[in-house]
Protein backbone atom coordinates (compact mmCIF):
# COMPACT_ATOMS: atom_id res chain seq x y z
CA UNK A 1 0.00 0.00 0.00
CA UNK A 2 2.92 2.32 0.68
CA UNK A 3 3.98 2.05 -2.94
CA UNK A 4 0.44 2.76 -4.09
CA UNK A 5 0.32 5.84 -1.83
CA UNK A 6 3.68 7.01 -3.20
CA UNK A 7 2.32 6.75 -6.72
CA UNK A 8 -0.81 8.62 -5.67
CA UNK A 9 1.43 11.33 -4.24
CA UNK A 10 3.50 11.61 -7.39
CA UNK A 11 0.34 11.88 -9.47
CA UNK A 12 -0.97 14.62 -7.22
CA UNK A 13 2.45 16.22 -7.63
CA UNK A 14 2.19 16.31 -11.42
CA UNK A 15 -0.82 18.63 -11.24
CA UNK A 16 1.04 20.83 -8.75
CA UNK A 17 4.01 20.81 -11.10
CA UNK A 18 1.98 22.22 -13.97
CA UNK A 19 0.64 25.14 -11.98
CA UNK A 20 4.07 25.79 -10.49
CA UNK A 21 5.53 25.75 -13.99
CA UNK A 22 2.91 28.28 -14.95
CA UNK A 23 3.95 30.61 -12.12
CA UNK A 24 7.65 30.14 -12.73
CA UNK A 25 7.35 31.03 -16.39
CA UNK A 26 6.00 34.47 -15.50
CA UNK A 27 8.56 34.92 -12.73
CA UNK A 28 11.23 34.21 -15.33
CA UNK A 29 9.90 36.67 -17.85
CA UNK A 30 9.01 39.54 -15.56
CA UNK A 31 10.40 38.81 -12.11
CA UNK A 32 6.82 39.18 -10.98
CA UNK A 33 4.20 36.77 -9.68
CA UNK A 34 0.82 36.66 -11.36
CA UNK A 35 -1.45 36.08 -8.37
CA UNK A 36 -4.47 35.52 -10.61
CA UNK A 37 -3.14 32.26 -12.03
CA UNK A 38 -4.96 30.14 -9.45
CA UNK A 39 -8.25 31.68 -10.48
CA UNK A 40 -7.24 31.36 -14.13
CA UNK A 41 -6.88 27.62 -13.53
CA UNK A 42 -10.27 27.55 -11.82
CA UNK A 43 -12.09 29.42 -14.61
CA UNK A 44 -10.57 27.17 -17.27
CA UNK A 45 -11.43 24.06 -15.31
CA UNK A 46 -15.03 25.16 -14.80
CA UNK A 47 -15.44 25.86 -18.51
CA UNK A 48 -13.87 22.51 -19.37
CA UNK A 49 -16.07 20.72 -16.84
CA UNK A 50 -19.22 22.35 -18.24
CA UNK A 51 -18.28 21.34 -21.77
CA UNK A 52 -17.67 17.78 -20.61
CA UNK A 53 -20.79 17.34 -18.52
CA UNK A 54 -23.30 19.56 -20.32
CA UNK A 55 -22.34 19.17 -23.97
CA UNK A 56 -20.74 15.73 -23.67
CA UNK A 57 -17.75 16.98 -25.65
CA UNK A 58 -14.84 14.56 -25.96
CA UNK A 59 -12.13 15.18 -23.39
CA UNK A 60 -9.62 16.38 -25.98
CA UNK A 61 -11.90 19.22 -27.08
CA UNK A 62 -12.77 20.23 -23.53
CA UNK A 63 -9.08 20.19 -22.69
CA UNK A 64 -8.24 22.41 -25.67
CA UNK A 65 -11.05 24.75 -24.62
CA UNK A 66 -9.58 24.92 -21.11
CA UNK A 67 -6.21 25.82 -22.63
CA UNK A 68 -7.84 28.54 -24.71
CA UNK A 69 -9.73 30.01 -21.75
CA UNK A 70 -6.56 29.94 -19.65
CA UNK A 71 -4.63 31.69 -22.41
CA UNK A 72 -7.30 34.35 -22.82
CA UNK A 73 -7.67 35.04 -19.11
CA UNK A 74 -3.91 35.25 -18.59
CA UNK A 75 -3.58 37.57 -21.58
CA UNK A 76 -6.24 39.87 -20.17
CA UNK A 77 -4.57 39.72 -16.75
CA UNK A 78 -1.32 40.85 -18.34
CA UNK A 79 -2.96 43.86 -19.93
CA UNK A 80 -4.94 44.79 -16.80
CA UNK A 81 -2.37 44.13 -14.09
CA UNK A 82 1.11 44.28 -15.59
CA UNK A 83 1.43 45.99 -18.96
CA UNK A 84 0.70 49.52 -17.85
CA UNK A 85 1.71 49.21 -14.22
CA UNK A 86 5.00 50.96 -13.58
CA UNK A 87 7.95 48.69 -12.92
CA UNK A 88 8.97 51.02 -10.09
CA UNK A 89 6.17 49.82 -7.85
CA UNK A 90 6.96 46.24 -7.03
CA UNK A 91 3.81 45.63 -5.05
CA UNK A 92 1.43 47.12 -7.62
CA UNK A 93 1.19 44.04 -9.88
CA UNK A 94 0.77 41.81 -6.81
CA UNK A 95 -2.24 43.78 -5.69
CA UNK A 96 -3.70 44.27 -9.13
CA UNK A 97 -3.38 40.60 -10.07
CA UNK A 98 -4.86 39.59 -6.72
CA UNK A 99 -7.73 41.89 -7.64
CA UNK A 100 -8.17 40.24 -11.02
CA UNK A 101 -8.36 36.93 -9.17
CA UNK A 102 -11.11 38.18 -6.88
CA UNK A 103 -13.06 39.54 -9.83
CA UNK A 104 -12.71 36.22 -11.67
CA UNK A 105 -14.08 34.27 -8.73
CA UNK A 106 -17.05 36.55 -8.28
CA UNK A 107 -17.71 36.65 -12.03
CA UNK A 108 -17.81 32.87 -12.16
CA UNK A 109 -20.10 32.59 -9.15
CA UNK A 110 -22.39 35.32 -10.51
CA UNK A 111 -22.60 33.98 -14.05
CA UNK A 112 -22.28 30.23 -13.58
CA UNK A 113 -23.32 29.85 -9.95
CA UNK A 114 -21.36 28.79 -6.91
CA UNK A 115 -21.96 25.05 -7.29
CA UNK A 116 -19.20 22.55 -7.60
CA UNK A 117 -19.05 21.20 -11.13
CA UNK A 118 -18.68 17.53 -11.83
CA UNK A 119 -15.85 16.38 -14.06
CA UNK A 120 -17.01 13.08 -15.50
CA UNK A 121 -14.56 10.21 -15.64
CA UNK A 122 -12.92 9.93 -19.06
CA UNK A 123 -11.38 6.48 -19.25
CA UNK A 124 -13.90 4.52 -17.27
CA UNK A 125 -12.80 0.94 -17.75
CA UNK A 126 -9.06 1.32 -18.04
CA UNK A 127 -7.20 0.09 -14.99
CA UNK A 128 -3.58 -0.96 -15.04
CA UNK A 129 -2.32 -3.32 -12.37
CA UNK A 130 1.40 -3.84 -11.92
CA UNK A 131 1.87 -6.13 -8.96
CA UNK A 132 0.33 -4.35 -5.96
CA UNK A 133 0.17 -1.11 -7.95
CA UNK A 134 -3.02 0.13 -9.52
CA UNK A 135 -3.30 3.07 -11.88
CA UNK A 136 -6.74 4.02 -13.15
CA UNK A 137 -7.47 5.45 -16.57
CA UNK A 138 -7.80 9.06 -15.53
CA UNK A 139 -4.57 8.98 -13.58
CA UNK A 140 -2.97 7.75 -16.76
CA UNK A 141 -4.43 10.69 -18.68
CA UNK A 142 -3.14 13.12 -16.09
CA UNK A 143 0.30 11.59 -16.21
CA UNK A 144 0.51 11.48 -19.99
CA UNK A 145 -0.92 14.93 -20.60
CA UNK A 146 1.20 16.57 -17.91
CA UNK A 147 4.33 14.88 -19.25
CA UNK A 148 3.40 15.85 -22.79
CA UNK A 149 2.85 19.48 -21.83
CA UNK A 150 6.16 19.62 -20.00
CA UNK A 151 8.00 18.15 -22.96
CA UNK A 152 6.22 20.47 -25.42
CA UNK A 153 7.07 23.44 -23.25
CA UNK A 154 10.69 22.32 -23.07
CA UNK A 155 10.90 21.92 -26.84
CA UNK A 156 9.17 25.23 -27.42
CA UNK A 157 11.49 27.12 -25.07
CA UNK A 158 14.64 25.52 -26.42
CA UNK A 159 14.03 24.88 -30.08
CA UNK A 160 11.92 27.72 -31.45
CA UNK A 161 12.72 31.40 -32.07
CA UNK A 162 9.85 32.64 -29.87
CA UNK A 163 10.76 30.20 -27.12
CA UNK A 164 14.37 31.33 -27.24
CA UNK A 165 13.12 34.91 -27.19
CA UNK A 166 11.20 34.15 -23.97
CA UNK A 167 14.38 32.92 -22.36
CA UNK A 168 16.26 35.91 -23.72
CA UNK A 169 13.73 38.33 -22.27
CA UNK A 170 13.89 36.55 -18.95
CA UNK A 171 17.70 36.96 -18.96
CA UNK A 172 17.72 40.65 -19.94
CA UNK A 173 14.64 42.38 -21.36
CA UNK A 174 16.38 45.62 -22.41
CA UNK A 175 19.11 43.79 -24.25
CA UNK A 176 16.55 41.56 -25.89
CA UNK A 177 14.85 44.69 -27.20
CA UNK A 178 18.17 45.86 -28.64
CA UNK A 179 18.37 42.56 -30.50
CA UNK A 180 15.08 43.29 -32.25
CA UNK A 181 12.82 41.22 -30.00
CA UNK A 182 9.39 42.79 -29.42
CA UNK A 183 9.68 42.48 -25.64
CA UNK A 184 6.10 43.31 -24.67
CA UNK A 185 4.76 40.84 -27.18
CA UNK A 186 7.10 38.16 -25.85
CA UNK A 187 5.92 38.87 -22.31
CA UNK A 188 2.30 38.64 -23.46
CA UNK A 189 3.16 35.32 -25.08
CA UNK A 190 4.71 34.16 -21.81
CA UNK A 191 1.52 35.06 -19.96
CA UNK A 192 -0.57 33.26 -22.55
CA UNK A 193 1.51 30.10 -22.27
CA UNK A 194 1.47 30.26 -18.49
CA UNK A 195 -2.30 30.66 -18.73
CA UNK A 196 -2.49 27.53 -20.87
CA UNK A 197 -0.47 25.64 -18.29
CA UNK A 198 -2.76 26.92 -15.56
CA UNK A 199 -5.79 25.87 -17.58
CA UNK A 200 -4.34 22.42 -18.16
CA UNK A 201 -3.51 22.05 -14.49
CA UNK A 202 -7.00 23.20 -13.54
CA UNK A 203 -8.83 20.68 -15.67
CA UNK A 204 -6.45 17.82 -14.88
CA UNK A 205 -6.81 18.57 -11.18
CA UNK A 206 -10.57 18.55 -11.68
CA UNK A 207 -10.26 15.18 -13.38
CA UNK A 208 -8.28 13.84 -10.46
CA UNK A 209 -10.66 15.28 -7.84
CA UNK A 210 -13.81 14.57 -9.89
CA UNK A 211 -15.13 18.10 -9.36
CA UNK A 212 -14.11 21.71 -9.68
CA UNK A 213 -15.30 24.41 -7.35
CA UNK A 214 -15.29 28.15 -8.05
CA UNK A 215 -13.71 28.81 -4.66
CA UNK A 216 -10.44 26.94 -5.13
CA UNK A 217 -8.63 29.68 -7.05
CA UNK A 218 -6.64 31.24 -4.27
CA UNK A 219 -5.93 27.87 -2.69
CA UNK A 220 -4.32 26.82 -5.96
CA UNK A 221 -2.22 29.97 -5.90
CA UNK A 222 -1.12 29.16 -2.36
CA UNK A 223 -0.15 25.62 -3.30
CA UNK A 224 1.80 26.92 -6.27
CA UNK A 225 3.58 29.44 -4.03
CA UNK A 226 4.54 26.66 -1.62
CA UNK A 227 5.96 24.68 -4.49
CA UNK A 228 7.94 27.49 -6.06
CA UNK A 229 9.27 28.72 -2.73
CA UNK A 230 10.45 25.21 -2.00
CA UNK A 231 11.83 24.65 -5.47
CA UNK A 232 13.41 28.04 -5.91
CA UNK A 233 11.64 30.98 -7.51
CA UNK A 234 11.94 30.82 -11.27
CA UNK A 235 13.73 27.48 -11.13
CA UNK A 236 11.69 25.27 -13.43
CA UNK A 237 13.34 21.93 -12.61
CA UNK A 238 13.36 22.72 -8.91
CA UNK A 239 9.65 23.50 -9.15
CA UNK A 240 8.84 20.12 -10.66
CA UNK A 241 10.83 18.28 -7.99
CA UNK A 242 9.28 20.34 -5.19
CA UNK A 243 5.79 19.69 -6.61
CA UNK A 244 6.38 15.94 -6.48
CA UNK A 245 7.74 16.24 -2.94
CA UNK A 246 4.71 18.16 -1.72
CA UNK A 247 2.37 15.76 -3.49
CA UNK A 248 3.99 12.77 -1.79
CA UNK A 249 4.18 14.44 1.63
CA UNK A 250 0.52 15.48 1.50
CA UNK A 251 -0.59 12.02 0.44
CA UNK A 252 1.44 10.19 3.04
CA UNK A 253 0.34 12.55 5.79
CA UNK A 254 -3.29 11.93 4.96
CA UNK A 255 -2.77 8.17 4.65
CA UNK A 256 -0.71 7.57 7.77
CA UNK A 257 -1.37 10.54 10.07
CA UNK A 258 -4.44 12.69 9.68
CA UNK A 259 -5.85 15.12 7.15
CA UNK A 260 -5.67 17.90 9.72
CA UNK A 261 -1.85 17.73 9.78
CA UNK A 262 -1.54 17.89 6.02
CA UNK A 263 -1.36 21.66 5.51
CA UNK A 264 0.46 22.12 8.78
CA UNK A 265 3.30 19.83 7.74
CA UNK A 266 3.65 21.47 4.34
CA UNK A 267 3.59 24.97 5.87
CA UNK A 268 6.22 24.02 8.44
CA UNK A 269 8.39 22.53 5.72
CA UNK A 270 8.11 25.67 3.61
CA UNK A 271 8.70 27.84 6.68
CA UNK A 272 11.88 25.99 7.54
CA UNK A 273 13.02 26.26 3.93
CA UNK A 274 12.42 30.01 3.92
CA UNK A 275 14.47 30.41 7.08
CA UNK A 276 17.29 28.05 6.21
CA UNK A 277 17.52 28.42 2.44
CA UNK A 278 15.53 31.47 1.33
CA UNK A 279 16.65 30.83 -2.23
CA UNK A 280 14.78 27.51 -2.28
CA UNK A 281 16.04 23.95 -2.00
CA UNK A 282 17.34 23.76 -5.53
CA UNK A 283 18.67 27.20 -6.42
CA UNK A 284 21.90 28.88 -5.57
CA UNK A 285 21.53 32.41 -6.85
CA UNK A 286 18.85 34.92 -5.98
CA UNK A 287 16.76 34.73 -2.84
CA UNK A 288 13.00 34.86 -2.85
CA UNK A 289 12.88 38.20 -1.13
CA UNK A 290 15.15 39.72 -3.71
CA UNK A 291 13.02 38.65 -6.62
CA UNK A 292 9.41 39.16 -5.64
Amino acid sequence: MLIQQLVNGLLLGTTFALIALSFNLVVGALDRLNFALGETAMVSAICGALLLSRLDLPFVLAFLAALAVGALVAGVTFVLSFRFVSADYHTAPILSSLGVGLVLTSLVTRVLGSDQRRVPTVLDDVRIEIGPLRIVGDQLIILVVAALMTVLLYVFLNRTPWGTAIRGVSDDPDMSGLLGIPVQRVILLTFVISGMLAGASGLLTGLSFHTVSPFTGFETTLTALMVIVLGGLGNITGGVIAAMMIGVIETLTVAYLSATYRDLIVFVLVGITLLARPQGLFTRDTGVVGRV
Partner: peptide, 30 residues
Protein backbone atom coordinates in the same frame (compact mmCIF):
# COMPACT_ATOMS: atom_id res chain seq x y z
CA UNK B 1 16.57 47.17 -35.21
CA UNK B 2 14.14 46.57 -38.04
CA UNK B 3 14.96 50.02 -39.37
CA UNK B 4 18.64 49.08 -39.54
CA UNK B 5 20.19 50.20 -36.25
CA UNK B 6 22.13 47.90 -33.94
CA UNK B 7 23.39 48.90 -30.51
CA UNK B 8 26.05 46.96 -28.62
CA UNK B 9 25.60 48.42 -25.17
CA UNK B 10 28.07 49.06 -22.42
CA UNK B 11 29.09 45.89 -20.60
CA UNK B 12 28.25 43.68 -23.61
CA UNK B 13 25.07 42.30 -21.98
CA UNK B 14 25.27 38.85 -23.48
CA UNK B 15 22.36 36.60 -22.45
CA UNK B 16 24.19 34.29 -20.04
CA UNK B 17 21.76 31.37 -19.81
CA UNK B 18 21.50 31.04 -23.59
CA UNK B 19 24.09 29.27 -25.70
CA UNK B 20 26.44 31.19 -27.96
CA UNK B 21 24.49 30.09 -31.00
CA UNK B 22 21.17 31.08 -29.41
CA UNK B 23 22.57 34.52 -28.62
CA UNK B 24 23.61 34.92 -32.22
CA UNK B 25 20.32 33.65 -33.61
CA UNK B 26 18.38 36.05 -31.41
CA UNK B 27 20.38 38.80 -33.09
CA UNK B 28 18.57 37.84 -36.29
CA UNK B 29 15.16 37.54 -34.58
CA UNK B 30 13.58 40.42 -36.47
Amino acid sequence: VRAGMAHVPEGRRILPSLTVEENLRLGAFA
